[in-house]
Nucleic acid binder design. Structure first.
Length: 484
RNA sequence: GUUCCCAUCGACUAGCGGUCAGGUCACCACCCUUUCACGGUGGCAGCACGGGUUCGAAUCCCGUUGGGAACGCCA
């Protein structure tokens, strides 16, 4: 049995789309679970679409999420070069061979000429009736015109009759009539191949055993098979993947924001959560398990679990999963992850960010939520005294003032300022006043934060803010409640 | 328009002729609780429609409808 070789072949056009990442992930997992090789190839045959720095984005993203390739432009390998723009002569050579085997032909028609021919063919764009006049040029004449330097393009010569089918590991057998296929361009006038040709040549030459790509290629796959056949090449196994869509049946698009890996990553989603989530978009382990690390996936992933219907990317579930990963972190690791976000909102030097991070861990879903949750620590926000009125806590303007004064008096007496001391002092008051802790502590929490919702309760906030600041904010609250 | 693909709760999915149609997210309720979360318990909710095949269809076939994709000197 030949060794399994899969490839991820992105074009360097900017960002790592989430669907592309998933394709890379599956290709990687299939290689790893089958003891094969995972190859990275850069498809940059469209010189106009090149975006500077995007190859680096590809390298960085793959590395960041842990998809290590065995062969690629940066690390070489026995089938290089792995950048298509550096393989120009290879495609030209095979294009000639394809022509010799009657699988392709030179076309000298200008774009304008063909457009008008299409018009004449009935006004519609159906390829069915379109006949390229160059298709039936004699070989000698074609060669002569080519040699004379006339601008040309190489087109695929699709058989006029019959049908072509191929087997896909997730979609089954797909058949199309050859009459619906067009004689597409294989080699452009700049001498570089189109994807339609390059992918076939490279996949064959690089001995790719399983071609893994999005289902948008499903309908053109028969054309590729015709090329394989014309060249008498072995046809690889095909694994087409269902598309990932945005809600309302729209394809996930970079234009609409948040569709690239780095967008999510920069928003504070963990790479492990992103990988885990997108893996489940189109694949299932055949049991109820949902949490998988990449290492675990390397063991359990299987083509049999691949799904064939499009999936909608659900940010809410990603958020849930991200929260799961955050809660599983050790406090130390979470602190390190949260630190940059904490520092966005907190500039005071006297705040124990480690303690604050401990408060935050259980309540954080996405790291980017952090700044807005803690910015009251630096500066007490302006707030209305109506906030002291809380039905559930049974607080009103009157008892709030009273409790705040009690807190002030009790806390002032405290010698040390640690959580246990503060809590004991305050709970002693709860006890002696005979009220619910919620009722007694809510006014304090409001006074300390100016917020309805806070990370941690009153005693924890008091500890973090420090004695002086705590008393200052209580005083501020008392003043607010005293004024009419 | 033509061709191809898809169709189970709002979302991701399990199911591959006989199941009370299962799980997860979201949502709702209750419990826990110094707010919010976390955690716990319970609940709501689905086989797009119409024909077949069969003793029996979510499962097989056909059609309809709906959704997606491809039809570039883009990949």
């Amino acid at each position: 049995m030949t060794t399994v070789r899969t490839r991820f072949a992105p074009s360097p056009t900017g960002y790592m789309h989430i669907g592309n990442l998933r394709t890379a992930l599956y290709a990687y997992l299939i290689a790893r679970t089958m003891n094969g090789k995972f190859i990275l190839r850069i498809e940059d045959t469209d010189q106009e679409r090149l975006v500077e720095g995007s190859v680096e984005v590809i390298y960085n993203t793959l590395k960041l999420v842990g998809l290590e390739h065995d062969e690629g432009p940066d690390i070489g390998g026995p089938f290089g070069p792995y950048v298509q723009s550096q393989r120009k002569s290879i495609y030209q050579e095979w294009a000639e061979k394809l022509i010799a085997r009657d699988g392709g032909y030179y076309c000298f028609c200008s774009k304008e000429k063909l457009d008008s021919l299409r018009q004449e063919a009935g006004g519609n764009i159906t390829a069915v009736k379109f006949q390229d006049p160059c298709r039936d040029l004699g070989p000698e004449e074609a060669k002569k015109r080519a040699a004379s330097g006339e601008p040309l393009v190489v087109r695929q010569k699709i058989p006029r009759g019959g049908s072509t089918s191929f087997d896909d590991l997730v979609y089954g057998t797909v058949t199309v009539e050859n009459s619906t296929l067009e004689d597409g361009i294989l080699l452009k006038s700049d001498g570089l191949p189109t994807y339609n040709f390059a992918n076939v040549v490279d996949d064959h030459l690089m001995q790719i055993s399983h071609v893994i790509r999005g289902s948008e290629y499903l309908s053109s796959a028969p054309k590729y098979n015709l090329i394989y056949q014309a060249l008498e090449w072995e046809i690889p196994a095909y694994i087409h993947l269902p598309l990932i869509m945005k809600a309302a049946g729209k394809k996930l698009s970079k234009r609409e924001g948040d569709a690239s890996f780095e967008d999510f990553y920069n928003q504070g989603y963990l790479k492990e959560a992103i990988v885990n989530y997108i893996t489940l978009l189109g694949w299932n382990p055949k049991d109820d398990r949902e949490m998988f690390s990449l290492d675990e996936l390397k063991k359990v992933f299987s083509v049999a679990g691949l799904n064939n219907s499009p999936a909608i990317f659900d940010v809410e579930k990603l958020q849930w999963m991200n929260g799961e990963y955050i809660r599983k972190m050790t406090p130390e690791i979470f602190y390190e992850a949260a630190l940059p976000w904490l520092q966005k909102a907190i500039h005071r030097a006297d705040i124990d960010l480690r303690k604050l991070s401990g408060l935050l861990q259980q309540r954080t879903v996405v790291l980017s939520d952090i700044p807005a949750r803690v910015d009251f620590i630096d500066v007490l926000p302006e707030y209305s005294k109506d906030m002291f009125v809380n039905k559930k806590a049974k607080t009103d303007l009157v008892n709030s003032l009273e409790y705040l004064k009690t807190c002030q008096a009790e806390l002032e007496k405290l010698g040390s300022w640690d959580h246990e001391t503060i809590k004991q002092a305050l709970y002693a008051m709860v006890e002696s006043l005979g009220v619910k802790a919620n009722t007694f502590l809510t006014p304090l929490r409001i006074a300390l934060s100016g917020r309805e919702v806070t990370p941690g309760g009153a005693t924890e906030l008091a500890e973090i803010l420090g004695k002086a600041e705590t008393l200052q904010r209580i005083k501020n609250g008392i003043t607010k409640l005293t004024q009419l």
